[in-house]
Design a protein around this nucleic acid. Structure first.
Lengths: 220, 220
DNA sequence: CTAAAATTTGTCCAATCGGGTAATATACAA
DNA sequence: TTGTATATTACCCGATTGGACAAATTTTAG
């Protein structure tokens, strides 16, 4: 089995040196380069792409999240692991959205970075449990009893007709009844009627509540 | 080091048998019980809590996601790994919200379940990369350049005064101007004025758009 | 084919909304 | 101390909204 090739991007020299030591006597992971900024890493990736990139977020010029997005776009097979000291929820979510395959905290002496790198290289996604907790805390707990309608968007969607869904989407865009009417080429009265039945079906009393309910249910 | 204790919950007998074999000759992971339904697992947990529970989702009576929520409530230290064959996005999100520490696909011959169990027991969060991709696909990619305002909810929040935020929250609940006025004990005119400046600051033209923008930005 | 559901349009009316303009009071910072 | 931002209230007006009721046409499903 070929060793896993690894790049490290971290602007702090001592961190890079410590990484070099840490991976030096390892057979299965080969640290083939370390960089103080994203651009240097990109250049090297062109010449010799690595399997895994260990990425700090706080970097000069281009930050690690942006760099992750770029790397995933250019090298979809490359695995980026965020390795930083903050577990800011926004940053975690942004990292996940940008395609990071892991998020590990520096100030966690307890973890085995090598094992995580191997797991990620092997097709797993890994995070510190602590990070996962804070990142997933914003996911609402659904009605766990009904597996088919966990987040009830299907229930909602199913209760509305195709036309009503179309109208609801426009309603969410903030359109008035007459604007909606113009868009779907019916009379204002018709648009009003559709909105009316949407309100009834969603059991709300006005379009604001309807819009919020739909957005919260992730209908659009 | 003590071996990791493990329970398996899966209603399919052959799966349980195959697990027994799989973990039989392992020193570091001790499979100390397997159950065909959640209730049996709960009973046993009372007598002897396990470190890790491997949980199918599709179970008779109580499903695995509900069971996960229950277990995390009763035994916060226990680690639940969802082990199932579907990667339905809703189910993944629900599992994460309910505190699962992992989500592994059955039909992935390539993975090393033992390694994952060890990682999870050790305080990591693990998922198949495939699962992660589908689950995180709904997270919007933020403005990656501005680390401080990744999801611009802070930007939004900062531009509004405390009073306006209070009004915005009520607006999102679908309250009318006069209802808002009653709640914060001011005149209807005042409430109207606040709503007006909210609309201006969010650069939208009506309260529906304001509500949607606020909800989308995860302001509430 | 037939019954049910969805789509369409209309009218009336009271309530609500958003914009504009303006004035007063207060608190906080330069 | 002197602004600048915030909070408060008021009035007017046209546009929009939601409820209620009624009815025609089209589509869909049994």
């Amino acid at each position: 089995m070929n060793p896993i090739t690894l790049y490290v991007v971290d602007d702090y020299l001592l961190t890079r040196i410590s990484h070099r030591r840490y991976f030096a006597q390892d057979e299965s992971i080969k640290l083939i380069g370390d960089f103080s900024c994203a651009r240097d890493c990109f250049e090297q990736m062109e010449k010799m792409p690595a399997d895994v990139i260990l990425m700090e977020i706080d970097l000069p010029k281009m930050n690690g999240i942006e760099a992750t997005r770029y790397l995933k776009e250019m090298y979809p097979k490359a695995k980026v692991i965020i390795y930083t000291s903050q577990k800011n929820e926004q940053r975690v979510l942004a990292s996940l959205a940008c395609g990071a395959c892991g998020y590990v905290l520096k100030n966690n002496s307890d973890i085995d970075l090598k094992k995580i790198i191997k797991m990620v290289a092997h097709g797993e996604f890994c995070m510190d449990l602590e990070v996962a907790k804070s990142a997933f805390s914003s996911i609402p707990i659904p009605d766990t009893k009904d597996l088919e309608n966990l987040y009830e968007n299907r229930k909602l969607k199913n209760s509305l007709t195709a036309r009503e869904l179309q109208v609801l989407k426009l309603l969410i865009d903030g359109k008035t009844n007459s604007q909606i009417a113009r868009e779907i080429i019916v009379s204002t009265n018709t648009a009003k009627a559709h909105v009316g039945s949407i309100l009834t079906k969603l059991s709300v009393t006005d379009r604001v509540q309807a819009a919020v309910k739909a957005v919260r249910a992730n209908l659009f």
